[in-house]
Structure formats: C-alpha cells, structure tokens
C-alpha cells in the first residue's frame, strides 16, 4: 500500500511582479523515495521548493508537507524538514564545523556531528572559515546542515552544483541512505545523470508547470515521442568501419515491416548482396558516429542482429557492445530536450 505523500502540491501559483513563475504546478513526493524536480534554469524549480519550505507564500493552490501547511504550521513543521538552499545559506565568517554544530543545536536529538562530518568528509576543513571553502565543500557542509536534525523530508536545491565527482558520490550515497531510512527527498536539478541515477520519481518542470512525471524508466519509454521512435541496433566498436556491406545485407533481408511481428522466416539465409533491392527503397539506415558507434535503424528483428554480427565478423572486429531497443541510447537528457525544447535561455 502506498504511503501517504510526504509532499503534496496542488495547483501552486506564484507570481513575481504579476508574472507567474509557478503556474498551476502539481507534484507529489513520497516517504522513502527520491523525487527529482527536473527543469531548465528559470523553470520555477527553486520558487516551488521555497513555497514547500515555507520561505514563500503561494499566491494560489495548496502545499502540504507531512500533511501540514508550510507557512501556517511552520512551527510544527520546521523541526521535521531539512533544507539545503541553492546558494548555501552559510554565514561566511564562521568555521565549517562551528556552523554545523550551531544548526545541530536547534534540534532536541540531532545526528552525531562528528559522525556526519566524517561521513561527508568535512573533517579536512572543519576549522576553515566558510568564506575559504570551495564550492563542493560548501555544498557538502550545507547538506550536512540539512540532515543534521534527522528530518523526515529533505529539500535539496541543486545539491551537486560545483561538486567534484568524489563529493558527488558522497552526497549521493548519503541521499540513498536517507531514502532507505524512509526519508522523503525532494531535489531540484538540471543534471540529467543526477536525476537518472538517484530519482525514483521525476517531475519535469518547465515554465512553472509539470510537463511530465514518472519514473526514469517511464519517461525513457514514453516521454516525448519515444513510443514512435524506430527500433535500433546500437553497436559500439572501433571507428572507421565500412558500413556499405551492412547496409546492403540489411536491405536484402526479408522486409520485416511487411510481416507483422517482424519475424523473418527461421533459417532463411542472409541473401547475397547482389540480390539486394536498390538502397533508396531500403527501410534501413546505418549511421556511423565519429566515436566508433554505429546506429542501425529499421525494422529490427533477430535476422537484423545476425546481419550486424556477420558484418562485424567479416570486418574482424569484436564490438564492445551491441544493444537493441526502441530509441536505444536515449537518455533522460534526450527526453528532457524533447520536452523542454533545445533553445538556449
């Protein structure tokens, strides 16, 4: 049975100077799950989480965190919610660990500061003033401050900004641990890999609205027009292979599109290249990438994979990978760009 939502936003509207930055936005986050709010800069992500944190009052709509109103019930809610702001919110003149201890002192039973500090690698700069910390160090300290009070809901606004890969690992590990402990984690990000690796549920936000929601798998499967995307075989091998023989071999295959189910007759041999129909009527395309990837698009069936394998064998090349699928190689980034457009903003 699904747990009741840790966060429920319905019809949220927030205007600045009459302009709606958040425009009838709905989203849900559950305990024990990482919910990513993914969107380009200026999409309204930060404003949305600030409304959830009680830092801004909505102009319309409702926000419920753990069933409470973040503004009206702030006193009851604040001890149960952890926040990491996009700009850190750390005073610059104090030492790193002093700041963490200070935030910990606001809670009755905070996490052990020493343990948390070791966990996130804060010890190496414990006595450095915040002013002199690197971006990644500040982010780790801000995350520590967000979780030191043992929150049930954590809001992380762009947690990986400015982090080196090691910091990012440490942060992601902690986020996964919080999730395993039943904490609801809401993170905003424009980093696709962050959403793809961490999130159980992704809400894609643009122009102040949620334009797609689902698991990463859902979005990859049917986000945008992926359902209509042609089937492909993706080959990772070495650059510079001759693709003409493959194109001819594929063109000579029995026309799979004419046979529902796409199955060629078992045992039918791959016809000679000489019997191939003219290339312009072939349903196949073979595109070579500069990095040694080859994308074969068409009515993919087992015979097609066999033809690809035969082609590789003829060239004496062992591929690193051969993958089949619909829209193979499609990442969350592709879905995201399909949904939000490719123009710069």
């Amino acid at each position: 049975m699904p747990a009741s939502p840790a966060l429920e936003v319905r019809g949220l509207v927030k205007r600045y100077d009459g302009r709606a930055v958040v425009d009838h936005l709905d989203l849900v986050a559950r305990p024990g799950a990482v919910t990513a709010v993914l969107g380009p800069n200026g999409a309204g992500k930060t404003t949305t989480v600030e409304c959830c944190e009680g830092l801004r009052a909505p102009d319309a709509g409702t926000v419920r965190v753990l069933g409470l109103d973040p503004v009206a019930d702030a006193r009851r809610l604040r001890p149960r919610v952890g926040v990491m702001l996009q700009d850190g919110g750390l005073p610059t003149g104090v030492r790193a660990l002093e700041m963490l201890r200070h935030v910990a002192s606001m809670y009755a039973r905070p996490r052990d500061v020493a343990e948390l500090s070791a966990r996130l690698g804060l010890d190496s700069f414990a006595r450095t003033t915040v002013r002199r910390l690197s971006g990644g160090q500040r982010q780790r300290l801000a995350l520590a401050a967000a979780v030191v009070g043992r929150p049930e809901v954590v809001f992380l606004d762009e947690p990986s900004a400015g982090m080196d890969p090691q910091s990012r690992r440490a942060v992601w590990d902690l986020v996964r641990e919080l999730r395993a402990d039943g904490v609801a984690i809401v993170l905003t990000t424009h980093l696709m890999d962050e959403a793809q690796d961490l999130a159980d549920l992704v809400h894609v936000v643009d122009h102040g609205r949620v334009i797609a929601s689902g698991t990463v798998a859902d979005l990859l499967a049917d986000g945008g027009d992926a359902a209509d995307a042609p089937a492909t075989v993706l080959v990772e091998a070495t650059p510079g292979l001759e693709t003409e023989p493959l194109a001819k071999a594929l063109a000579a295959l029995p026309h799979a599109a004419a046979q529902p189910g796409g199955a060629a007759k078992p045992g039918s041999p791959v016809p000679d290249a000489g019997d191939a129909p003219p290339a312009d009527t072939s349903p196949w395309s073979v595109v070579a990438g500069a990095d040694g990837t080859y994308t074969v698009t068409g009515p993919v069936d087992p015979r097609a994979v066999e033809a690809v394998a035969a082609w590789l064998a003829d060239q004496g090349v062992l591929a690193r990978s051969v993958t089949t699928g619909r829209g193979t190689g499609r990442t969350l980034e592709d879905v995201f760009l399909d949904l939000t457009g490719r123009h710069l903003r």
Binding site: R80, R150, T215
Partner: peptide, 19 residues
C-alpha cells in the same frame, strides 16, 4: 510511481515541536 518501501524514520515523532 515506484514505491520503494513505506518505512518511517527510526524515531517517529508524535509532534514536530518536541523534536
């Protein structure tokens, strides 16, 4: 949506304020 469990934090609070 996936439901990776409905576990609650180790110390469930009766109310927020005593935390």
């Amino acid at each position: 949506t996936t439901q990776p469990g409905t576990v609650h934090p180790a110390e469930p609070p009766a109310s927020g304020e005593d935390r």
